[in-house]
Write a protein that binds this DNA or RNA. Structure first.
Lengths: 113, 113
DNA sequence: CTTTTATGCTACTGAATTTGTAGCATACGA
DNA sequence: TCGTATGCTACAAATTCAGTAGCATAAAAG
């Protein structure tokens, strides 16, 4: 499997034993597909399979693993009938993600020339 | 080694063939240690070994790989004598990283109760 | 000049994570 | 009773990461 303990604030995580919240989130978001999953859920909840499709056919094994971690961290919640969606806490992260997108556009325009 | 082609905007990346810049950066930052490296360089340039120490003894293999990718993406530059530092482009990402830290503090306070 | 120290980097092996495919059980509507 | 969607799991192969050791160059110290 993956790391037995999903990263949480106030807990030691991979790469840091201090328990600082920023370290926990850097660990969590630094795992493959984590950021992408949050990104794909930015507008509306998606079912497991819709999310799988949105993430370019991510394998169900990893999706399941990431969702488990994101749920443990209370960033994602599951409502049968709705599917998976961002928690209120995670939605407060959306402006940051959108800022990341804006930044990425500039970054891209600089790469060109 | 790792992925032969470091993620760049306007190029297909792992998990997305569209070439959208946001996908490239989600791939890049979604690799182990990428976010952490940018984080540790936020204040000042660090030498390879200082950076290694800051990242809780990250193995040199991966650090080398990440730096290679981040340099290909023009987020990190290397100045012999100074060490590794954030590019002007990457520095424009710092407010977003600091916003992430702020968010993480709130997130942590909500976990407690 | 010789030794020490720091830096950037590589080799190599084993461990951990991710991928891809197949498939199961439940639930719901036709 | 089919057919379909959903959430999820098993398993083997492939990729990535970790940990340790060590090299080459360069600058400083002796």
């Amino acid at each position: 499997m993956a790391s037995p303990e999903p990263p949480l604030p106030h807990r030691p995580v991979r790469g840091s034993t201090t328990g600082r919240p920023i370290m926990a989130i850097l660990d969590l978001l630094g795992r493959r597909w984590s950021l992408r999953i949050l990104w794909e859920l930015r507008d509306a909840p998606l079912t497991f399979r819709a999310l799988q499709g949105a993430c370019d056919a991510i394998s169900p094994t990893v999706l399941q693993q990431r969702l488990k971690e994101l749920r443990a961290a209370r960033l994602v919640s599951h409502d049968p009938g709705q599917g998976y969606g961002l928690s209120a806490t995670a939605r407060r992260l959306l402006p940051t993600l959108l800022a990341l997108q804006d930044w990425a556009e500039t970054w891209a325009s600089e790469e060109e020339h």
